[in-house]
């Protein structure tokens, strides 16, 4: 089983906005409203900063509970930053290919390319890990995804890997299981795929990913099997491609989907 590591350097390298930013990580990035030892003074607790006392009455109720609105906003921001990272990385890779190739330093470029590719994967995994953990704070998660392909856990986000490489134009499939461990029925929801990308900037469009179930309903303690089919378009260059499968539920149930195109 592949071990997946988090980007733990906490540094930001040069690049397009958000391209190289570590995503807010659960371990060191509490969302406002959630206080941890060593945190800066929370608005309203009257400790530390000179002006904290001035805002005490304003936020006295805020300080007592984590705000659903703020948690929702934090999740939206993480999603948008993640989308920016993917787009920016693709642009950056094009710069590497074109501009620096012309400068006549192919070995240096290749090294940088490899480094960026690894960082890209780390960043994506950091983000999905953080998003999953934040989502779990919104409410006790009753529903989870289990994969029947190879599994690697990144925080609470499963990685769903196609068991065998697929040739461009052909279809591969893998099953995942969705469990409702709660005592209440889950509202019907859909699974939505994103584009899959590889380190060279190539991509497989989202519409190449299909599910055998359009809408998923789960009774209490019910398990549902969903088959994921992917057909990389003819001409898709060989490589390892990754993207997200995400539900349209408020807690944004999600998994990383990885496929090797032979």
């Amino acid at each position: 089983m592949a071990k997946i590591r988090h980007n733990s350097t906490g540094t930001e390298k040069k690049g397009p906005p958000h391209a190289a930013e570590p995503a807010p990580r659960p371990s060191d990035e509490p969302v406002a409203g959630e206080h941890r030892p060593g945190d800066p003074p929370r608005p309203g607790n009257g400790v530390g900063a000179t002006s904290a006392a001035q805002v005490t009455p304003v936020f006295k109720s805020f300080a007592d509970a984590t705000s659903q609105i703020v948690m929702q906003a934090a999740s939206i921001l993480e999603e948008e930053v993640a989308a920016g990272i993917l787009a920016a990385k693709q642009i950056e890779n094009r710069f590497i290919d074109i501009e620096e190739m012309r400068s006549g330093k192919p070995d240096e470029i290749l090294q940088r390319f490899r480094r960026d590719a690894h960082e890209l994967v780390d960043i994506i995994l950091d983000i999905v890990g953080a998003a999953a953990k934040n989502a779990s704070r919104l409410a006790a998660r009753a529903i989870s995804i289990r994969t029947s392909g190879s599994i690697a856990e990144v925080a609470q986000t499963p990685v769903l890997t196609m068991p065998l490489p697929i040739k461009a134009g052909e279809t591969g499939e893998v099953a995942l299981a969705i469990d409702n461990d709660g005592d209440t029925a889950a509202q019907p929801f859909e699974l939505l795929p994103t584009d899959l990308i590889n380190a060279a900037g190539g991509h497989i469009p989202a519409h190449a990913v299909q599910f055998d179930l359009k809408e998923i309903s789960l009774a209490p303690h019910q398990h549902q099997r969903v088959v994921v089919r992917i057909t990389p378009p003819a001409g898709t260059p060989p490589g390892t491609y990754s993207g997200l499968i995400q539900s349209n539920r408020p807690d944004q149930l999600r998994a990383v989907l990885t496929v090797v195109v032979a």
């Binding site: 945190d39 800066p40 608005p43 805002v55 304003v58 936020f59 805020f62 609105i69 906003a73």
Partner: peptide, 15 residues
């Protein structure tokens, strides 16, 4: 909603 967000902003300011 605005007050909750402003409270969160002050919290994030300190970070």
């Amino acid at each position: 909603v605005a007050r909750q967000l402003a409270g969160a902003a002050i919290f994030e300011f300190h970070k």
